[in-house]
Design a protein around this nucleic acid. Structure first.
Length: 487
RNA sequence: UCCUCAGUAGCUCAAUCGGUAGAGCAGAUGGCUGUUAACCAUAAGGUUGGGGGUUCAAGUCCCUCCUGAGGAGCCA
């Protein structure tokens, strides 16, 4: 739960941090004022930040200043005894100021203390057509100004949580001995599985070199072959898993699918852990531990932001997250899930049927109606899953798992990998793929292969789940979606 | 990519059956001694997304394109 109203918890920078780097910056952060206001009371301080809002009367005025160090604003009061009072009341919203004044107890309700300004200097004036106003803006409008929206409460909270969440993920894995592997962004193989890829080329698109048969001659391209942006680091990281035992990737991923939904972006980040000497059960335990760890981490490190989300974005957010922390995640096989869905009272647009993939409406029913908490669905028919997933003894299902969470849907997808050389080779052929494209991958089974497993976690979907934000475009600084790569 | 809805002042929205395009906020000017999205007053602010059509008359009806949102598929 959030600390008292006067604290500004971890997540911003501090003067101590500056001093430890041998830099005396000479001004005080708002974060520090909120945490040390009792000692700082009646002292003269300098602050630097941007005007969030300003209210003026005839002889005095208030500025709410935000310096990015913490979620809260500092109320600054100044009177017409200031030499530049008449100019100051006209400084537009968004202007950057350097203010010197005394920290005093506030006589009015709403804030325990305020800065009594003695000097207000402009560092950078804002123009009169500053798009952000003293009112609520729609997310759609703010998406048109992604370079300015981090100056709003919601987006300042979102992107601080996003930053902390990345830290939480590294922290979780490093505490458990995982090695962080940077798999390539540019990939030379198109064997990473389904998903349209973005071509990477230096060829002249207006006049590409042709072979005898008039096909484009990629031998003359930069890498001497066709290359694309990666859609997953999994296959690559498996090699490192069989050396380091516990590894993970965390980096950008690119999908050229023409997806227009709240949950899809063309460029997004993915976390892919891979563990050796492990089966599907170990894999699911890791996923559950990780999800709970990052929730706990964010609740502790960003209480003000989380309180804000709970008030203005989704009023059941904190309750929902607390329930996840308290719950033991549910486990259910695909076959059982189909049975449950077929017996359900709800009428589905697509009747559930063994052999077909679960529809969004089915997933929502399971996580939101039946269990009302995260649920792992396991052991899918082999035909609807990737070739590298381990074939179960029944010969018709594979050791796959999807984690479905209420409101967001599929947040994690993973599997135990097929470690048996012969079975894997046969699966590649069955799926209509060419074994020669997977020689190096098959080699991992030839040279000391062991049972191993892993999963992929959509980073943005995690941010959405933790903040209650409903559109992926609002948790990415500069989102890329079909027909949108501005800025 | 498919389905549905939407696009009117800088922003958020209104405009009845097709009949002179309005309000709040922001911005401007003036007022106000403790404000919290401050408040009060005044003036200003428009090629109704682009193009074409029907009509005496189109923000409104038709066609088309563009853009956005929601849903579906694909997935993370």
């Amino acid at each position: 739960m959030p600390a008292g109203a006067t604290s500004c918890p971890p997540g911003g920078f501090t003067l101590q941090w500056n001093l430890s780097r041998g830099v005396t910056m000479g001004w005080t952060t708002i974060k520090q004022i909120f945490s040390d206001h009792e000692q700082l009371l009646n002292q003269v301080l300098e602050v630097r930040g941007w005007i969030r809002t300003q209210r003026e009367s005839k002889n005095f005025a208030f500025i709410e200043l935000n310096d990015g160090s913490c979620f809260k604003n500092l109320q600054v009061i100044y009177s017409d005894t200031l030499a530049n009072f008449n100019e100051a009341v006209k400084y537009p919203l968004g202007s950057a100021l350097k203010i010197t004044g005394t920290l005093v107890a506030s006589p009015a309700a709403g804030q325990p203390f305020e800065l009594q300004a003695e000097k207000i200097e402009v560092i950078g004036l804002s123009a009169l057509d500053y798009p952000l106003q003293k009112k609520r803006h729609s997310f759609e409008f703010l998406r048109t100004i992604p370079h300015l929206r981090p100056r709003t409460n919601t987006f300042m909270a979102v992107f601080r949580v996003r930053s902390l969440l990345a830290y939480a993920i590294h922290s979780f894995f490093h505490e458990r001995g995982f090695v962080y592997v940077h798999t390539p962004i540019i990939t030379g193989s198109d064997c990473e599985g389904a998903g349209q890829m973005f071509r990477v080329t230096t060829l002249d698109l207006k006049n590409p070199p042709r072979r005898q048969d008039s096909e484009i001659d990629f031998n003359q391209d930069f890498f001497g072959k066709e290359t694309n942006l990666t859609v997953s680091g999994q296959l690559n990281v498996e090699g490192f898993c069989l050396a380091f035992n516990r590894v993970y990737t965390f980096g950008p991923t690119f999908r050229a699918e023409n997806s227009n939904t709240q949950r899809h972006a063309s460029e997004f980040w993915m976390i892919e852990p891979e563990i050796a000497f492990a089966d599907l059960g170990d894999n699911m335990q890791l996923a559950e531990d990780m999800l709970k760890y990052i929730i706990r981490f964010i609740l502790e490190q960003a209480p003000q932001e989380m309180e804000f989300f709970n008030r203005f974005i989704n009023t059941s957010l904190l309750q929902r997250l607390q329930r996840v922390l308290d719950a033991k995640f549910e486990h259910i096989t695909y076959t059982r899930a189909i049975e449950l869905l077929q017996k359900a009272d709800s009428v589905f647009t697509f009747p559930p049927q063994w052999g077909s993939d679960l529809q969004t409406e089915h997933e929502r029913y399971l996580s939101e109606k039946v269990f009302q908490k995260p649920v792992f669905v396991t052991d899918y028919p082999k035909e609807i899953k990737a070739f590298y997933m381990r074939l179960n003894d029944d010969g018709r299902t594979v050791a796959a798992m999807d984690l479905l969470v209420p409101d967001v849907g599929e947040i994690i997808g993973g599997s135990q990998r097929e470690e048996r050389h012969g079975v894997l080779k046969q699966r590649i052929t069955e799926m209509g793929l060419k074994t020669e494209d997977y020689e190096w991958y098959l080699n991992l089974r030839k040279f000391g292969g062991v049972p191993h497993a892993g999963f992929g976690l959509g980073f943005e979907r995690s941010v959405m789940y933790l903040t209650g934000m409903e559109n992926i475009r609002d948790v990415i600084p500069y989102p890329r979606t079909p027909k949108n790569a501005e800025f």
